[in-house]
Design a protein around this nucleic acid. Sequence first.
DNA 1: CTGTTAGCGCCTTCAC
DNA 2: GTGAAGGCGCTAACAG
Lengths: 336, 336
Amino acid sequence: MSFNKITIHDISKALEIDSSTVSRALNDSPRVSKKTKAKILAKAEELGYQRNSLASNLRTKKTNTIGVVVPRISRNFFSTVIAGIEETAHEKGYNVVICQSLESLEREQKIAETLLSNRVDGLLISISMQTTSYNHLKPFKAYGAPIVFYDRPCSFESSSSVSIDDIDASFKATEHLILQGCKNIVHFGGPQEIKLYQNRKKGYQNALEKHGLDYAEDYFFSTKLSEKDGIAMAKKVLALGNVDGIYSANDTAAISAIQYLKSQGVNIPKDIAVVGFNNDPISAVIEPSLTTINQPDFEMGQKATTILINEIENNAKPVESIVLVSELIIRDSSKH
Amino acid sequence: MSFNKITIHDISKALEIDSSTVSRALNDSPRVSKKTKAKILAKAEELGYQRNSLASNLRTKKTNTIGVVVPRISRNFFSTVIAGIEETAHEKGYNVVICQSLESLEREQKIAETLLSNRVDGLLISISMQTTSYNHLKPFKAYGAPIVFYDRPCSFESSSSVSIDDIDASFKATEHLILQGCKNIVHFGGPQEIKLYQNRKKGYQNALEKHGLDYAEDYFFSTKLSEKDGIAMAKKVLALGNVDGIYSANDTAAISAIQYLKSQGVNIPKDIAVVGFNNDPISAVIEPSLTTINQPDFEMGQKATTILINEIENNAKPVESIVLVSELIIRDSSKH
DNA sequence: CTGTTAGCGCCTTCAC
DNA sequence: GTGAAGGCGCTAACAG
């Protein structure tokens, strides 16, 4: 098992050059002559030297790594945010460590501990649905590692957060239906313990109010975001009889609802117009009649990362709360 | 900026107990009396001590971390594999670092370098579509860090690989259509530079051959796996006129094709039966008429991780190639 | 430009 | 059971 574990000292010995010079050369320091630099790099290559970042990071107290905590990578919304995070991070010379909390506080706590013990320079986190206490995040601040909350804002000490204006997006969506002439608009909502879904409901109510329409309890359906919810709700819609508009806070539900309604002979969007979130690129292909709310997800990843790196490198103070705005993609306005 | 950077020495001083004992206590060594252990843990808590894994990993030459390279986390297939990987890894006390190559060799190389320099104990990798040379993986072996290839096998030195028997899955899918009475079966294939899609085509051809059906070039459509391919292919199917079965190597394409065909008045599965891959849980809801091939994706993640950890911990020699088998989920066999 | 010295925070012999 | 000493691999003063 004589494995190849070459250190700068091996290069140093082989060349009879001090290890500190070797270190400088490997870090492309300007304080080493081109000639020796070349010699060192050649020898490193020859011996199959592989830098040990653990040692280097320990010494410099910097890992150039950002920890990212995400509820679930498989959700298209989040994987797009991650893409934005990675783009900006790599651009600025940072690595990214992605961890899934799976909406579990316990996992989130464990993740936080590992990330901190591995001394990430900063943390980007979208807290789990279960998270109500933030003790597991305090050590980061105590260590001088900034935290930026994305998507799910959170009033925790002084930390930046980047999120989407959900009330505004919902308001736009609902108003769009109203302006098309809808009078009986149903809202497929999400779990009301979550701020996000509270806000979406609020935007819906605001739009109704502005246009003099009444809010009715039985026009609000709470879903658990499962795939089958759409169908169940579509059935309720049919039972109500007079529904002419649906604003869905969840694309999965909206799509299966449309599918079901169509199979029952309902004409979408003529009979019932639908607005939902376009979190899945495939939904546009599958369901072109769905007017969608386009969320600035990628942009959110970029923005959050930019803010975080600024706090890491320049000790910038938190910007508190940045809110991004969604836009409506209207594919079919031929209602009525 | 007086940040809280407590080390074992701070605890050591505060308690007048040597740092080596503190270290032992924090690692729950049996060679420390319960009493001092309790005292140390209490003090650690009190001072807000946070372990520095960089130092500890540097010293022990073990990170208890597995590097995972995945082409794209947003693909449902891969995120399920990752779920399997994480389950097994965490069970056995390992952390997981997930990196996306985005099908780029250049990124894959950079990722490999960072993972190795951070001294992951082993690597799980599904190589990018661009990858043909494996020089970036050699240093892992030189370092004694085992590699396990998952999903996209790869003959690289002696390394284990876990993959799915694609020929078998395709054969089953096609045979299922034949046994239902289909005679003119089209295959929606993937890029033929990729082994996976070659194999899927081969399984399709094998089934035709076994049942005495001819393979026709114009019944094979090569897709680039984009969302729009399904519709384009559905149009070709209609142009052919006599197609009564579709075996799709890609669920996205299959679903949009079905949607399009239905919109053109085709009865699925009566007129044309379809079998595709169920890589997206939503597809089952959206398109219940799609008979699906259920891939052992989660299982693959678990298996690959088990093998890797075994190689890491017991220096087990590679098992070369493990092949997992898919099963068919028949939702509607009422063809004709 | 290069070498000397010291130490990041932790763990692990080896003593006692 | 606990302490003393040394070093994992690298880098950052400080010299010269």
